[in-house]
Design a protein around this nucleic acid. Structure first.
Lengths: 141, 141
DNA sequence: TGGCGATGCGGGTATATGCCCGCGATGGAT
DNA sequence: ATCCATCGCGGGCATATACCCGCATCGCCA
């Protein structure tokens, strides 16, 4: 049926499909799923600086910086200088927190629907993608 | 451990990690894994036109057009007008075919290493990502 | 056969992503 | 106290991705 079971191509395509689905649902909150995820990451880690947050999210530091500036323009996060003048400390604004709370309800609905549709594969999806993520940076080292 | 088992965020991160790994391996062929996958898709489908290829790959048509123009600049594919003057028919050039053949050996090495590292999860990864991909466009309809 | 809806595509705009380079701030070694 | 290696970051460049709009072409139908 398929001579090309490329792990990467399949993962990319599934990620794009999931992204489109979540994006559509989150659109009424003015957020894309990438932005929602980033806001959640900031909420969880309250990043001391961009490099640390980059490590936590697996994103490139410069990517992170640009994405955060878009959220800053929406007044959802603040980027302030830290004690170390080199750092930029990231934090959710009040508006950011309430936006995340509102969007999280929509997000949970999508999660739930997908979880029902996928059954046991839902947990497997999370387990395997995490395993892949954890495995690969090690390969590079 | 993790209050946020977002299917999308996990899938995106795994896809990025996989992309980085394949990209690094394919770099010596002057290809990114997205380009390699696209060349393979053209080879498989011998696309009648961009819209059909977009449907086959799950990519947006305009994305596909731009990506193909980069490959055209490398003389790896040709974009020629079809009988229907609206169509742009895509085909691999001779250089494209040989580039794909060479890169495919490197690709197979990465596949094999990942398959060994992941064990049974490798097949599950493919099965589940395909299921997700197949499921989601239907949700939208 | 003339016209209009449908189709295929490119380009504009916006976001996401990563690499590399250079600049400025730090901090430890001398 | 000075100086250099290190660290954190922004910006430039390239690619990937998607949406929308407008243009050209087609095909069908009256």
């Amino acid at each position: 049926m398929d001579p090309v079971a490329c792990y990467c191509a399949n993962a990319r395509r599934a990620a794009l499909a999931l992204t489109a689905a979540y994006d559509e649902a989150l659109a009424r909150h003015g957020l894309k799923v990438t932005q929602f995820s980033l806001l959640r990451a900031v909420e969880r880690h309250g990043a001391p600086n961009l490099t640390a947050l980059a490590g936590a999210t697996g994103l490139d530091r410069s990517t992170l910086g640009r994405n955060l500036r878009l959220l800053e323009a929406q007044r959802l996060v603040t980027l302030s200088p830290g004690d170390d003048q080199r750092d930029r400390v990231v934090a959710l604004s009040r508006a950011g927190r309430s936006r995340v709370r509102a969007a999280a309800r929509t997000w949970a609905g999508v999660q739930e629907a997908l979880g029902r549709a996928l059954g046991e594969d839902a947990e497997r999806l999370v387990a395997i993608t995490r395993r892949v993520t954890a495995l690969l940076p090690v390969e590079a080292a």
